[in-house]
Amino acid sequence: MQADVFVKKRWNSFIFLLILLVVTFVSIVITEFNMAKGLASLPKALQWGFTNFYPDEMALTKLPDILNKLRETVLISVAATTVGAIFAFLFALFGSRTTKVNGVLSKVSRGIATIFRNIDISAWSMILLFSFGQSALTGYFALFFGSFGFLTRAFIETIDEVSSSSVEALQATGAGYFSIIFQSVIPSGIPQMISWILFMIETNIRSATLVGILTGTGIGFAFDLYYKSLNYHTASLVVIVIVITILTIEYISNYVRRVIL
């Protein structure tokens, strides 16, 4: 019996791999992608990058303006994530099987979170451009909606995973709903929730670069402006600043996770 199951899994894996190879081949044919030509152009592309894509003395004079744009991007990312986390926590309480008020509200909360989570931040940016135009508010709401959807789902799973036993114990003693939230859900789930919030801040700072290009704000707009004006040296400085910022935020985030978890 086990041998039959093993053989069936191997055949399923083989069929999936075969389908994947066929889809890849068809995609290459449709897009007329030439692998040999792409590899042959790689040395020339690297040569161009080393020749043009580095900050020079003139680019360094733009550093204060770049850092100002970076500060705007980081602050918007942090604000969108933290406010999104507050709303996500409220929806997670209603959507969690452990703390739900009733089944209908739970399904509604999960449904709203699913919709917001499955719409990409770049898509949110383009949708919101029609209402708010190219402004920092568009970028803020795009990051907020994305953060809200992701964190709601993450918080629901956290509450169901770490709080179920303590919630049942408090319910058995006749504790009220808010007593359960403040005495069980928050104390047991807060470390993991903070970890998810830090992860979302990292993600939003990365995403904010693309969002800035679409909304005309922040560090993404600065890169787009310098790149399109053929000022590659300053554009490379923007990229270096973004990379350093992301690595710094990730280091701080990992340190905080080690402390609280």
Rank of each mutant, 00 (worst) to 15 (best):
R97C: 02
N204M: 02
V241C: 02
K62A: 15
E72Y: 04
R117E: 04
L143Q: 08
S236I: 04
S41C: 00
R153A: 06
E161I: 04
A154F: 11
I112C: 01
W124A: 08
P43Y: 04
L225H: 14
F91E: 00
S147H: 01
F144D: 10
Y54D: 06
R258K: 15
A92V: 01
F150H: 11
L46E: 01
L247Q: 14
A113Q: 03
W124G: 05
S163W: 06
L93M: 03
I246T: 04
A123R: 00
F87S: 12
F25V: 05
N12H: 12
P191T: 00
I260K: 03
W196L: 07
L214Y: 12
W196A: 15
I180D: 00
I181C: 09
V7Q: 11
T114N: 15
L137A: 12
L170Q: 04
K9P: 00
A85W: 02
A36D: 09
E161P: 00
S13F: 13
I86F: 15
K107N: 10
S96R: 00
A154W: 06
A222Y: 13
V167A: 06
S207C: 07
L17V: 11
T73W: 08
G103K: 05
V101H: 07
A222Q: 13
L143I: 08
S195D: 11
K8C: 06
S184C: 05
G218W: 12
F148T: 07
V78S: 05
I246M: 07
A3I: 11
I246P: 02
P43L: 09
Q171D: 09
Y140C: 05
L198F: 01
I76P: 02
F145D: 11
L90W: 13
